[in-house]
Design a protein around this nucleic acid. Structure first.
Lengths: 145, 145
DNA sequence: TTAACATGTAATTCAAGTAGTTACAAGTTA
DNA sequence: TAACTTGTAACTACTTGAATTACATGTTAA
């Protein structure tokens, strides 16, 4: 199964906060850009807030970036919204047969490999910042005109 | 959500086919090692067969490896069982607002990044073979004695 | 002070995927 | 033919994702 779209929506939100930084970015406004509903935006924005990426307060309209654009990597967003939290990216079948040579050693053999693969993924996300994404969004838009 | 345990079960099956290559590896036997039921094993084995990794035929007891151990990478197994098929690893929120600068360019901006990350993951899986896993399983077992 | 508006969050619904299980048709072998 | 196997379909239970609704809580300005 795919990784939650919360990740791509989180990137969308942060990019929008920058590009529309002169305006007031309410959950309603953001929802219209993403094309979903405000409650979902507030939920994700809340996760980004917990991760220290945005400022947002009850009753006060609009979210703002809490860090420099160039200091927010996609890995930060990935970890902020992914609720992969305690779980690993790769699911491991539980309780293999300990009476079997393979069964009692398979988990220990593949877990380090899965970790390496997961770290490779995270490293790739860690070298891209929201600033890069914003620049690309602007550049792509100019290309079409 | 995590990547299906079919992946780790697939690795388990292939490792077992090698380590127990002197015996007859029926779906029932494999299921006892994995600690699941035979129907699920037959389903996954069928996927591995479609990918050309194992030999298995209706009515004939037991599956066997169809390739050299050192020629089967974890990426092969990943692709064989993952049914990620047409879908991408990263889910992308559909139909963002085309009237918004961010909305109409966000997908084009992040898709290449997601591809790079996904390829990094696959590359990490591609350099490890079932032979490596089998050797590690055997080595780990000796360590405990 | 109150009306209008915003966020935070819980509850609900619908859809999709995972994994486990049962059942049985079809193929093979002794 | 009997006993065994694989290949599948069907069903269940469970989990998660996403959309939606509703409302308590917080803020601001008239």
């Amino acid at each position: 199964m795919s990784i939650s779209t919360r990740f791509s929506v989180g990137i969308h939100i942060l990019s929008l906060l920058e590009i529309n930084k002169e305006g007031v970015n309410t959950s309603d406004f953001i929802a219209k850009s993403v094309n979903t509903n405000p409650a979902l935006i507030r939920k994700i924005t809340g996760m980004l807030k917990t991760a220290g990426l945005v400022n947002v307060r009850p009753g006060i309209a609009g979210a703002t970036l809490a860090k420099e654009l160039s200091e927010i990597t996609l890995l930060d967003v990935y970890q902020a919204v992914n609720v992969l939290s305690d779980k690993e990216l790769f699911g491991i079948h539980e309780n293999p047969n300990p009476a079997c040579l393979v069964g009692r050693n398979i988990q220990g053999a593949i877990e380090p490999i899965f970790s390496v693969a997961e770290l490779a993924l995270e490293k790739a996300l860690g070298v891209v910042t929201i600033e890069d994404v914003v620049k690309d969004i602007i550049a792509k838009d100019k290309d079409e005109n």
